[in-house]
Structure formats: C-alpha cells, structure tokens
Design a protein around this nucleic acid. Sequence first.
RNA 1: GCGCCUGUAGCUCAGUGGACAGAGCAACGGACUUCUAAUCCGUCGGUCGCAGGUUCGAAUCCUGCCAGGCGCGCCA
Length: 555
Amino acid sequence: MRLKKIIRDVITASVEAAQASGELTFDTLPAFEVEAPKLSEHGDFATNIALTLASQARQPPRRIAETIIQGLASPPGMLSKVEIAGPGFINFFIEDSFWYQVLPEIYRLGPAYGDSDLGRGRKVQVEFVSANPTGPLHIGHGRGAALGDALANLLAATGHEVVREYYINDVGNQIFTLGKSLYFRLRELQGEVVEFPEDGYQGDYMKDLARAYLAEKGAPSSYQPKEADLLALGRYAAGLILTGIKKDLEDFGVYFDRWFSEAELYRQGLVDRSFDLMKAKGYLYEQDGALWFRASEWGDEKDRVVRRSNGATTYFASDVAYHLHKFQQGFDLVVDLWGADHHGYVPRLQAAVEALSFKGRLKTILVQLVSLLRQGEPVAMTTRGGTFVTLEEVVAEVGKDAARFIFLTRRPDAHLEFDLEVAKQQSNENPVYYVQYAHARLASVFRQAAAQGLEPPGPDPSFAALLMLPEELGLLKMLANYPELVEAAARSLEPHRLTYFLTELASGLHSYYYKHRFISEDIHLTQARLCLVQGVKTILAHGLFILGVEAPESM
RNA sequence: GCGCCUGUAGCUCAGUGGACAGAGCAACGGACUUCUAAUCCGUCGGUCGCAGGUUCGAAUCCUGCCAGGCGCGCCA
C-alpha cells in the first residue's frame, strides 16, 4: 500500500490536467514533497506543490491549490477530506476505514511485507569492516560491522542484488611489521630479553600468537632473519588473526560473501592493468623517479603517488586497482564503509573513480569513532599500547543484539558514546529490549490465544469498522507506511531510520496492549485485534531482521 | 595553517527547506487480582553553538566566527 506514491500520482495527474486546460501555466513540474505532517491536524499527508509552483504559474499558492484539488481523482473511499492550509499546503486526510486494507496485504505477503523491487536489476557491493589483519577487531569495527550488515540487509530487502565484501590488506609494510613483532615475541618466549621495536604491535595477542607458533612450528630457524623470513612470520600471524576476525564477526552475526585479498590483486596483475589503463588515458606521469596520478585534475588537492621511486606501489595504487576491479564486475553502486579517520583519503579515491569514468557510482560512508564508557567514565583505548576493548569482549559483555541496536541508533557520521553499563542494563534506557519485548509479548498473546483454541485469524473486511480506536488507527498507519519507510532508508543508505521506526511501533503496541485486551469474550473483536497485532508482529520481525537483531518468541 | 565531521532539553540522541522543534533516560507523581510491569499514564524540561545572508518559509541551504573530534607522507 504505497499511499504516498498514490497521492503523488494523483497530484501530478491533476496538475498536468490543469496545465493542459490552461488553468496552470509552467514549463517543468517543480520538485515537490508529499510527506506525513508532524501534526495530525494537518492530515495524514501534505504537499507543498502549490507553493513550489507559485512563481512559475504566477498565481497565489492558495489559488493553485484550489485548482489542483478540483482536479483530484483519487481511488474511491480513500480520502475523507482535502483542505488548503496555511500559505498553500494541501492536506490529505485518509478515510479511517481505508487503513484497514493494509492487513490483507500483510496477510498475503507475510514476511515479505516491507520488501520491494526498488533496486531490481541493480547490483550493489557493500564493502565493510576490512580491518587490517594485524590485530583483533575492536568496538569501532563493531560499529562498521553492524552498519554494513544492516545496510546490506536493507538493500537486499529492497530488491538489490547485494554482495558483502571484506578487503584484506595483506600486502606491504604492516605484514612485515607484524612478522617482526611476532619474531621478537618468539625470542622473548625463549627466555631472551629483547628490546621490542617501537613500531611493533604491542598487544598481548601477539604473545598468544607466538605461543601458537611455537606449539605448531617450533622455534624459528634463524636468529638473524632475512626479510623473507619476517614476511613469512607476518603472513602466518595475519592468517591466524584473520581466522579470529572471522569468528568474532560470526559471533556478531555478520557474514561476508567474499573476502578479497590485496595480494590477490597483484597475483592477477590487476594493479599493472590499472596502470596501463590510466597511462593510456594520460592520467599518469613520472616525476622524481615516481609514478603519479593526476588526482588534482579530478578535484583532489594534489597529485598522488602510485609507484614510489623505490619501485614499490602504494596502498592507493592497490585501491585504485581494487575499485576498477569492482566496477568491472558490473556493480551499479559500490558502497565503502570506512572509519572516519580515513576521511582525508576520500577525494583521491573519488578522483580515481571519476577518472576511470565511474563517477557517482562509489559511495563512501564514514563511520565515526566510538568512545567507550563504563558508568560514564571513559575507557582508555590506545592501539599503540595494545590496550583496547575488543569486539569479542563487548559482545560477551552486553550481547550481540544490544550492541548492534545501539550502533544502529545513531547516524554514521555522528560520534557515538557506548556505555558498557547502559548497554548491559535490561531497561528502558536500552531500546533493544523495548522492541524485542513487544515482539515477545505478541508471541505470548498468540500462545495464549492458541491455548483457548483461537487460531490466528485471516483478515476480513468487517474488521475495518472494529479497528477504530486511536491506538488501532495509529498502528495501522505505521504498518501501511512501513514499506515506503524501508525504501526511503534504502535510498538514503540510512538503516538507523528503521531503528527509530521500530521503537515507535513498539511504543504504539505497548500502549495499545496496556489499554485494551486483545483476547476478550467478543470473538469478532478478538479476531480483528489479533489480525492487527499479527501485522505488527510481522513488521517487528521484518525490521529486526534487517537490523540483524533477534525477534524473540519469549523473554 | 588547510581540509572533513560534529554542536538540538540536565544526559544520550532523532529531525526530508515547511506549519507550534521530538524521543528515550534522568527528576517528580501515579498504574500490577488482567493476554508477559523488560510495560503503561502524567508533570517538568529549548536563544536548535554565535552572528549575518538566501527564501513566502531555515535546526535544515550559503558566508564568517567559536568549541570539540579526526585528518593533512614517495605509510597502510
């Protein structure tokens, strides 16, 4: 039931008819809004079209509004009132009994109600987390994981063909540094006193890795290791760390379709191929022995090195090749989720994407940092010193659902304060339980109904007249508007809109539950109400699924 | 110094150029003989950082300041 769309179409038809008859003159139909006003006195939907049309049509907005209303041809029984308000808004009031129609639709579509074909035929890749395999995931990665996964779910629900990808930076200095760190920890384990390198990875996990190495492979063969030996150690460590990362993500309910290795880019010669392509187009030049990309011609502040004078390619070169590879696979849209500390990197990558003529098809979402608190006090987190709270610890302490929900109640670009104590509390302060409780509560109602021999009823037109309480109409409206909300969230790549909607829906349900009995002596009324709350339960489950949070049958 | 993000109720945060700025928490006062009280009902709480500008209309767009965070390498 896409009411917003229906109203928009009805308006457009009326405006175009008025144009044809000469009542309104304008060149192009200006952009206009159809939205749910904040105040119910202003109707269920309102449009500003008369205001946006005023200057072109050279008529006062209120007169334009009148003309439009005259020509409205809406489906029978849908509108109870249309009025002009304020400077020229047109307010639409939907007939109360009309809302009931959402219930047969939910009944017919079941768990698919809320899905759409918005993105049909569109291939989208969501690349997220992509943490370097040099240490365990911390809470900031958790935020990216929750967001990326929910976004992928959201895009999938709206009909996009979605691929979830994790990019593994397993090339370059960091693997060498990782190997060096492991090497020193190995020597320590064998009783030597060593001076641990300053740029090494100092976390305790390196000691665990060293023990694992000794147990599996024994002492390293050489005390004067060559670079290749250290690289081998680094690859060993990265492999184990990556295994741990995969497990942490699984425990967090996050799965990837593909783990793409940077080393693979080189094995397949993709970096050289992207160089060839860009050279052929004249986007690269040599200077001071290095190879540069003309990033400044595409909006970046300066040109960027892709191959250093020592012959090594840069991380940026890998990324250009990687993104070229992405687009060559036919993705219409590629979404990258990055930690906000990488924001300075966006313009150069966008420059490359534009140069390769894929402009507009890469969307980077910057995920702001998470400050961890315990009872309002900041928890110190330094990567260098190796003291940080891992995602594994957070999940163990507060649970996957609470953590994911909290991550999804903020806009990505807003800083997030994550208080471990609050997240653990099973209270109002923790909206995840509020929403889950609504679902569990309904499950309980249906258990109770079943115990009394009441099967979940199918919809019946006679229910329309029985669901007229303000609480019931409120719920029906939310259910009816849900599919368009999901689409809007998908279009804007903002899963958090869903989080807020679910909290509101749960609130409406709890309030309704408290004031009115669903199961009563009046069989007909009972059936109508059960039919309604069955719809609520379906939507709660649908929304929670997208967020990656359980919809429990009992709590 | 330059760039990006943020600034909304005591706290944590929503808010699509629209109408009188919202929620949860906290505080205060109420509601369990009921289909789950992890719930409900009510009260209190605002110079939307500041100053200009654009617009019929600005928390929202533009400019300048102020404050916090993060970046600014032939590192990744």
